[in-house]
Write a protein that binds this DNA or RNA. Sequence first.
DNA 1: TGACAAATTTGTAATTATTACAAATATATA
DNA 2: TATATATTTGTAATAATTACAAATTTGTCA
Lengths: 137, 137
Amino acid sequence: MENVAHILLQKKIRPSVQRVKVLSYLLEKRNHPTVDMIYTELHPQMPTLSRTTVYNTLELFRENQLVNTLDFGEGSLRYDAFCSPHCHFECEECGQVFDIETPPPAIDGLVPSGFSLSRTSLYLYGKCRGCRRESTL
Amino acid sequence: MENVAHILLQKKIRPSVQRVKVLSYLLEKRNHPTVDMIYTELHPQMPTLSRTTVYNTLELFRENQLVNTLDFGEGSLRYDAFCSPHCHFECEECGQVFDIETPPPAIDGLVPSGFSLSRTSLYLYGKCRGCRRESTL
DNA sequence: TGACAAATTTGTAATTATTACAAATATATA
DNA sequence: TATATATTTGTAATAATTACAAATTTGTCA
């Protein structure tokens, strides 16, 4: 919506149709999608959309701190439009990613002296509620 | 050495030349290498070594809990032959990976009820001592 | 020891995610 | 409206990894 366009304008990013759609997708779905998930979902509505545009757009968003990348070690990156400090849980069964609304644990004092820390990522792996339920039915 | 062959035999893995060399490399260097680093270093001594063998060998080691994979989001996996619970720090300047000999922080209670946790990975990013020193010279 | 079976290694080809890049299109400005 | 600038697109390149079948090595047993 207009809402999303404003977010882009605040970052001095021109709100093209493609950019607004990609950011809207991220904000509405909150599903930490891969490039392929975004492309596959938006392509039917925008037949001219290019995969490259999705890559370019996400990279632009990342440079402007509108998204963070997540790497669960599956071979492709995921994107998160919620940049508050929080952790992520990936279900090893269904692949869904869940937000854990707790900031990553303090690790002050962990790094050797003389080192400087710029950021940390904590990834949690396991089974989500739905998948656990299924396996006990 | 023979030492390394014994480790493999304990896991009922036949200690072929290639397997012993790859595991020795990991244990001696402790440098969390990528497949390419291993291949590049071992190839001169073993001209017939194949990259595929390195991949196969590491996968076999992983299945037998002899190594863990690390994914710092650089596009290629790294391998760690020390499986005690500890964290990793990657220098954003020189790319070196350092062990942080502290177990990943307890995150009990972080996961939503009904979820089960199987493992966690904590990645730290920043500048190592050497690179900080260089930048202030 | 020699022959055969099983395990391992090798090299090439396929696959997948991502990036490079130039042409085409759309947008903004004068 | 003309022109410069920004954006998008599509194709081709790159890089990591996997698939797979042929070649080699190793182990077993007569």
